[in-house]
C-alpha cells in the first residue's frame, strides 16, 4: 500500500460516516407537527457532500495517475461540508436543539479532519506526480 492512499482511505471512511450519519444517528430531529426545520435541509446537503467526497476518495484509490488532482478537488469539497451546517444553511436557533448540540460539532470535526487529510494527501502525491 502506497503512503499517499492512506488519506483517501480516511476520507472515504469519514465521508461515509458524515453522509449516512446525517440521515441517522447524527441527523436532525423532526418537529412535533411533522414539518421539517432548517436542520433537516442542512442534513440533506451534508448527505450529498459526504457522498461526493466518498466518490472522490474511491476514484483517488482506483486511479493512481489522477490522485493529486482528486486530492486537490477534495479540499474545496470538504470545505463546503465544513461550512454547510450553520454558515451556508442556517440551523435552528436554540442551542439545545439536537442539530446544534450534535450534528454541527460532529460535522465540523468530520469535515475538518477530511480537509486536513485532503491537504496531506495532495502534499504526499505531489512528489509522485513529477
Amino acid at each position: 500500500m502506497k503512503k499517499n492512499t492512506i488519506p483517501a482511505l480516511i476520507i472515504l471512511l469519514l465521508s461515509l460516516i458524515a453522509a449516512l450519519g446525517s440521515q441517522t444517528f447524527l441527523g436532525a430531529c423532526v418537529h412535533e407537527d411533522g414539518s421539517f426545520g432548517a436542520c433537516h435541509w442542512a442534513c440533506r446537503a451534508i448527505l450529498g457532500e459526504g457522498a461526493l467526497l466518498a466518490v472522490l476518495a474511491l476514484m483517488a484509490l482506483a486511479v493512481k495517475r489522477a490522485r493529486f488532482g482528486l486530492y486537490l478537488a477534495m479540499i474545496p469539497a470538504s470545505l463546503l461540508g465544513l461550512l454547510t451546517p450553520g454558515v451556508l444553511i442556517g440551523l435552528c436557533k436554540m442551542p439545545t436543539m439536537r442539530c446544534r448540540m450534535l450534528t454541527q460539532p460532529a460535522m465540523t470535526i468530520l469535515f475538518g479532519v477530511m480537509l486536513v487529510a485532503a491537504l496531506i494527501g495532495a502534499l504526499l502525491s505531489r512528489r509522485g506526480e513529477k
Binding site: 442551542p95 439545545t96 446544534r100 448540540m101 450534535l102 460539532p105 460532529a106 465540523t108 470535526i109
Partner: peptide, 13 residues
C-alpha cells in the same frame, strides 16, 4: 479536546 468541547451542550443535556 475534540471529543468533549464541541459537545458540551450535548453532555449537559
Amino acid at each position: 479536546a475534540l471529543g468533549v468541547f464541541p459537545f458540551t451542550t450535548l453532555i449537559e443535556t
